[in-house]
């Protein structure tokens, strides 16, 4: 194992982490703002990939598939929040079971519409070339994933830190009651955040479809990993989600390469430990 092994594995870890950021940042925002434990989040990811497949089949355009898939999933999330989750109030157990119920509905619907085969989203040829940097072969698609996550992260950060809307969201995370008291419409903020979270998950599903594939069962496979990202980074914090996804991405890659037999254990054990010692996560807002 020379230095190349470490560099390539780190690069792979970062690119996987980039994908996890798209998935985890939405989940983290939803949790931070609304305290909703959303077990449909993996389904949003999977449905995003499937919708993109249909758009590509109909129009042949991968570029067009990204916004259409992400926006349709945002709409799904919006409707779920408005019509169902809103009625529950703050009760984590009922939220969990309701969102799982939807996850099962989505699973069956995906099976009925898109079938049970493993599918792949084929990105444009320009993204599938391999870049050679200093003797290292870097797959272009992984570079693209990192760039995409960085761009999305930057936009989210600018919105959260430098706009009025972002300030209202942060106020709602910190103290929803006070936020309502100073005239922030927290109900509308919640709706916006839930739709945004679903949007990001759907987007992640399209991007991830060219990397992980799109197949039945992906939803519940990716869901606990998204929770690991959120927990390790800290709920409701964008920076936390970024660091959490990088840590999980890198840990997952090295775990699988170095000690495959306990690779998932090395992912979830730190998650449990962090929760026990510091429930707000490494970088969560107090």
């Amino acid at each position: 194992m020379d230095w190349r092994f470490w560099l390539i594995q780190t690069f792979n870890g970062i690119s996987y982490g980039a994908l996890l950021f798209l998935l985890g940042s939405g989940l983290s925002l939803i949790f931070g703002v609304m305290r909703i434990v959303n077990l449909s989040h993996g389904s949003y990811f999977l449905l995003g990939g499937y919708v993109a497949l249909s758009v590509i089949l109909a129009t042949g355009s991968w570029v067009l598939a990204i916004p259409i898939a992400a926006l349709s999933i945002a709409l799904v999330g919006l409707l779920m929040e408005r019509l169902f989750l809103r009625r529950l109030g703050f009760d984590p157990l009922r939220q969990v079971l309701l969102t799982v119920g939807f996850a099962f509905l989505f699973q069956q619907a995906a099976l009925d519409i898109w079938g049970g085969d493993n599918r792949d989203i084929v990105p444009p040829a320009s993204l599938t070339q391999t870049a050679v940097v200093g003797g290292l072969h870097l797959p272009g698609y992984r570079v693209f994933m990192i760039a995409m996550a960085a761009a999305i992260g930057l936009i989210l950060w600018l919105v959260m830190e430098h706009t009025r809307l972002g300030a209202a969201v942060r106020a709602t995370v910190d103290d929803a009651q006070m936020a309502r008291g100073v005239g922030i419409d927290t109900s509308r903020i919640s709706m916006f955040i839930f739709a945004l979270g679903a949007f990001l998950a759907g987007l992640g599903g399209v991007i991830g479809g060219g990397f992980l594939g799109v197949y039945p069962g992906l939803d519940f496979q990716i869901l606990p990993i998204a929770f690991a990202v959120v927990i390790i980074g800290g709920m409701g914090s964008l920076g936390g989600a970024a660091i959490g996804s990088l840590l999980v991405g890198i840990a997952d890659n090295f775990g699988k390469a170095l000690f495959p037999e306990i690779s998932y254990f090395t992912l979830y054990a730190p998650m449990a430990l962090i929760l026990a010692v510091r429930p707000t996560g490494l970088f969560g807002r107090e």
Binding site: V96, I231, I262, S263, A269, A272, A276
Partner: peptide
């Protein structure tokens, strides 16, 4: 030590530890 939503999350993580061993070991 945890309660409410944190208890949900921590039991999820612990359950996934066992699943990870079953799946990979």
């Amino acid at each position: 030590r945890a309660s409410g939503v944190y208890f949900l999350m921590i039991t999820l993580a612990l359950g996934q530890c066992v699943w990870g061993l079953a799946y990979r070991w």
